[in-house]
Amino acid sequence: MKTTQEHHDRIAKMTFASVYPHLLAKVEKKGRTKDELHQVIQWLTGFNNKHLQQLIEEKATYETFFQKAKLNPNAHLITGVICGYRIEEIDNPTTKQARYLDKLVDELAKGRKMDKILRKG
C-alpha cells in the first residue's frame, strides 16, 4: 500500500499513551511479558521504563515520542510488511519508526526469539 500525507499526519498525532495499552495487551495475550515489551521498546528508542512512563503521562504524540528517541543504529534491519505497508518503502520518518515498533511488537507476540527481534544474529 502507498502511504498518504493524511496517513502520516494521523500517525504523527496519535499519542503513545493511547497505543501502549494495545501493544501490551497484544503481547500478553500471546504469553509474552510487559518486561519483554519494554526491552523491545528500549532497544528501538533508548527509553527506559521511567522515561516511557513520563511519555505516557505527558500524552506525547508519536511525532514527539520518536523525535525524543535515540533510534537504534540497527533499526534499518527491521524490514517486511506490517499493517499492509512495506517498511522499506515508507518515506516519512515518523511513520517508518511507528511501523518499526509495530513490527517488533508483532514479532514478540508471534513468539520470535528475543535475539532475532533485537537483530543480534
Rank of each mutant, 00 (worst) to 15 (best):
M1V: 09
M1A: 13
E6H: 02
H8E: 04
R10P: 03
K13E: 14
T15P: 15
T15L: 11
S18D: 03
Y20G: 02
Y20C: 03
L23C: 14
L24S: 13
L24P: 13
L24A: 12
L24C: 14
A25D: 13
K26G: 03
K26A: 08
K30G: 04
R32Q: 13
R32E: 08
T33D: 08
K34G: 11
E36Y: 06
L37S: 09
H38T: 02
V40H: 05
V40R: 02
I41E: 03
I41F: 06
Q42K: 14
W43Y: 14
L44K: 01
G46E: 00
F47K: 00
N48W: 00
N48L: 01
N49K: 11
N49D: 13
Q53S: 12
Q54A: 05
Q54R: 10
L55I: 01
L55H: 05
L55M: 07
I56A: 01
A60S: 12
Y62I: 14
E63M: 12
T64E: 15
F65N: 10
F65I: 07
F66N: 03
Q67K: 15
Q67M: 11
Q67S: 12
K68M: 05
K68N: 04
A69G: 11
A69I: 05
K70P: 02
K70L: 00
L71K: 07
L71Q: 11
N72D: 13
N72G: 08
P73L: 00
P73I: 00
L77K: 15
I78A: 10
T79N: 14
T79D: 14
C83S: 13
C83G: 06
C83T: 10
R86P: 04
E88P: 04
E88H: 01
E88Q: 10
E89A: 15
E89C: 08
E89W: 11
E89Q: 15
I90L: 14
N92W: 06
P93H: 09
A98W: 06
R99T: 04
Y100K: 11
L101W: 04
K103F: 07
K103A: 08
D106K: 06
E107A: 03
L108Y: 06
A109D: 02
K110I: 01
K113A: 13
D115V: 13
K116G: 02
I117W: 04
L118P: 05
L118C: 06
L118S: 04
K120T: 11
